[in-house]
Simulated assay, not measured.
Amino acid sequence: MTHPQTPAFIDFEASSLDLIASYPIEVGVCLADGSLHSWLIHPHVLWQDWSDTAEEIHGITRDTLIEEGISVRRVAHHLNELLSGPVFCDAWTFDSFWLHRLYRAADMRPAFQLESVSMLLSPAQIQRWSAIRRQVIEDLGLPVHRAANDARILHTTWLTLTDGAGSSSTIST
């Protein structure tokens, strides 16, 4: 199924891929108009998990989060100001876990619903997603595993795959 409007996309980077102990360290959003927003997240006092392997992938140190991250409550507030309705991700199991962990630590509820990008796509589009995503990454030349970049990649992949109202060249940078 295709969506009549360009959706918003969200991506998280995390302390590890452990779905028991991990927590979000960065969140990025690409809105329908292509505008980007991202925040480094200061670890909540109860969040202690850390993976050196994950750090090698995303390049964000725990010290950077402590020095530059903003509070879970401020991040959740910013997300609620920007987002409503369905917001799409490409790793629903992980992203929903990290979204829940963020909002629970903030003692808030999201003003939007997290959905899998697959809900927007036909079976044929799902089959083409990975190849188009790889091409988008090459065309944009953005480093992956940073939340804002990955949200932009989702947005541009969706536009390319669905021949959306805009093209990747019309997306704001």
Score class of each variant (00 low, 15 high):
residue 119 M to H: 10
residue 119 M to F: 10
residue 119 M to E: 12
residue 119 M to G: 04
residue 119 M to Y: 09
residue 119 M to Q: 08
residue 120 L to R: 12
residue 120 L to S: 08
residue 120 L to P: 05
residue 120 L to M: 13
residue 120 L to G: 08
residue 121 L to G: 02
residue 121 L to P: 00
residue 121 L to R: 01
residue 121 L to D: 01
residue 121 L to V: 02
residue 122 S to T: 15
residue 122 S to F: 10
residue 122 S to M: 10
residue 123 P to W: 14
residue 123 P to M: 15
residue 123 P to T: 14
residue 123 P to N: 12
residue 123 P to A: 14
residue 123 P to C: 14
residue 123 P to Q: 13
residue 123 P to D: 15
residue 123 P to H: 12
residue 124 A to M: 09
residue 124 A to W: 09
residue 124 A to H: 08
residue 124 A to C: 04
residue 124 A to R: 13
residue 124 A to T: 12
residue 124 A to I: 11
residue 124 A to P: 03
residue 125 Q to V: 09
residue 125 Q to F: 05
residue 125 Q to S: 07
residue 125 Q to K: 13
residue 125 Q to A: 09
residue 126 I to F: 06
residue 126 I to G: 04
residue 127 Q to L: 13
residue 127 Q to R: 15
residue 127 Q to I: 05
residue 127 Q to H: 12
residue 127 Q to N: 14
residue 127 Q to E: 13
residue 127 Q to Y: 07
residue 128 R to K: 12
residue 128 R to Y: 00
residue 129 W to F: 09
residue 129 W to C: 06
residue 129 W to D: 02
residue 130 S to W: 01
residue 130 S to A: 14
residue 130 S to G: 10
residue 131 A to C: 08
residue 131 A to V: 08
residue 131 A to K: 06
residue 131 A to P: 02
residue 131 A to M: 10
residue 131 A to N: 12
residue 132 I to V: 15
residue 132 I to K: 05
residue 132 I to L: 11
residue 133 R to L: 02
residue 133 R to S: 06
residue 133 R to M: 10
residue 133 R to F: 00
residue 133 R to Q: 13
residue 133 R to K: 14
residue 134 R to H: 13
residue 134 R to P: 01
residue 134 R to C: 12
residue 134 R to G: 10
residue 134 R to N: 15
residue 134 R to M: 13
residue 134 R to W: 11
residue 134 R to T: 14
residue 134 R to S: 15
residue 135 Q to E: 15
residue 135 Q to I: 06
residue 135 Q to Y: 07
residue 135 Q to V: 05
residue 135 Q to L: 11
residue 135 Q to F: 03
residue 136 V to I: 07
residue 136 V to K: 01
residue 136 V to T: 08
residue 137 I to V: 12
residue 137 I to M: 06
residue 137 I to R: 03
residue 137 I to P: 00
residue 138 E to A: 15
residue 138 E to G: 13
residue 138 E to K: 13
residue 138 E to Q: 15
residue 139 D to G: 02
residue 139 D to L: 01
residue 139 D to F: 00
residue 139 D to Q: 11
residue 139 D to A: 09
residue 140 L to M: 09
residue 140 L to V: 06
residue 140 L to A: 06
residue 140 L to K: 05
residue 140 L to H: 03
residue 140 L to R: 12
residue 140 L to F: 02
residue 140 L to T: 05
residue 141 G to F: 11
residue 141 G to R: 09
residue 141 G to N: 08
residue 141 G to Q: 11
residue 141 G to W: 11
residue 142 L to C: 10
residue 142 L to Q: 08
residue 142 L to A: 07
residue 142 L to W: 06
residue 142 L to R: 09
residue 142 L to P: 09
residue 142 L to E: 03
residue 143 P to F: 05
residue 143 P to I: 08
residue 143 P to A: 12
residue 143 P to W: 07
residue 144 V to S: 06
residue 144 V to I: 12
residue 144 V to Y: 00
residue 145 H to S: 03
residue 145 H to Q: 03
residue 145 H to A: 03
residue 145 H to M: 04
residue 146 R to A: 04
residue 146 R to H: 08
residue 146 R to N: 07
residue 146 R to T: 06
residue 146 R to P: 00
residue 147 A to I: 04
residue 147 A to P: 07
residue 147 A to V: 06
residue 147 A to R: 03
residue 147 A to L: 05
residue 148 A to V: 00
residue 148 A to K: 00
residue 148 A to N: 01
